[in-house]
Design a binder for these strands. Structure first.
Length: 276
DNA sequence: ATGATTTGACCGCA
DNA sequence: TGCGGTCAAATCAT
């Protein structure tokens, strides 16, 4: 019944985020210009980012002509209520190695995470500033490659709840879809700074429903506040579709441009991890 | 010896 | 009921 309205709201929300992202990218462009950092590569990158935002917005507009985003909030909030029964207790899903499970000797006795802050990155490299430990891999329906599951190395020592999922996208490309779930609560002082401007993140998408801007993506790790929304997965879907679109436009550059050689704490490397 | 990864089993949710 | 996420024993790497 309300599905159409909901989809429309999601589209509007996605568009809103894109517009904000475009604005911030524009600011970045001006900053680069003003501070005389006019590196050609940086200018090119910003121009591409802007182009991607414009293309995405145009694509959305062709689907759902937009005059204003005013209806967005209420529609989204409405659907949010529908399933937002997050009681907050489910968060500590896998904190204990030995589950206090009711049935002894049974594996997989756990509480599944209901919802936490999630954002998706498409990148050609898997490593980042945090150290991760792989805890699973699974074949995903309709996916060409299995999905790998990582948790923070400090999960048990510091109770860090951050996890990430990594999935290769195309056989011939080195592009990975990396989904980060939850914020790091571990002490990361000793590790590398978060995300540097020259990062390998060719695309950054997020669907943390209330996040003000696409460019705040990686800073999400510093923010623990979260307001649940049932539209998160829908939004992610939208973002990913957008990405696929953009990817077709830009993927030639993506593979070529990045590769700063940054090292990760655990030396994750796509070639090591994905031997297929 | 210790920590990381692999992999099949199991559980929760849609 | 099936899929996706997590657990944990077995195995591998250092």
């Amino acid at each position: 019944m309300d599905i159409a309205n909901n989809n429309k709201a999601i589209t509007l929300k996605a568009r809103d985020q894109l517009v904000q992202g475009r604005e911030v990218a524009t600011e970045l462009q001006q900053l680069l210009f003003q501070h005389g950092l006019g590196l050609d590569s940086a200018d090119d990158l910003v121009a591409k980012i802007l182009g991607s935002f414009n293309n995405s917005i145009s694509a959305l507009d062709s689907l759902e002509p937009v005059s204003s985003s005013s209806s967005l909030v209420t529609a989204v909030e409405g659907s949010q209520n529908a399933s937002c029964d997050n009681d907050g207790k489910l968060e500590d899903s896998g904190d204990s190695r030995k589950r206090l499970g009711p049935v002894k000797g049974k594996r997989g006795c756990y509480k599944r995470k209901k919802r936490s802050e999630t954002w998706t990155v498409e990148s050609t490299v898997l490593e980042d500033a945090f150290s991760w430990r792989k805890y699973g891999q699974k074949e995903i329906l309709n996916a060409k490659f299995p999905r790998s599951y990582f948790r923070c190395t400090h999960k048990f020592t510091q109770g860090c709840k951050a996890t990430k999922q990594v999935q290769k996208l195309e056989p011939e490309s080195k592009m990975f879809n990396i989904t980060y779930i939850g914020n790091h609560t571990c002490n990361t002082k000793e590790v590398a700074p978060k995300i540097k401007p020259c990062v390998h993140h060719d695309e950054i998408i997020m669907h943390s429903e209330d996040s003000p801007s696409l460019t705040t993506t990686m800073k999400e790790e510093e923010e623990n506040q979260h307001h649940g929304s049932s539209t998160e997965s829908d939004l992610q879907l939208v973002w990913q579709e957008i990405l696929v679109c953009e990817e077709e436009h830009l993927h030639h550059h993506h593979v070529a441009i990045y590769g700063c050689g940054e090292t990760s704490a655990n030396g994750l490397d796509s070639t090591d991890l994905w031997s297929w």
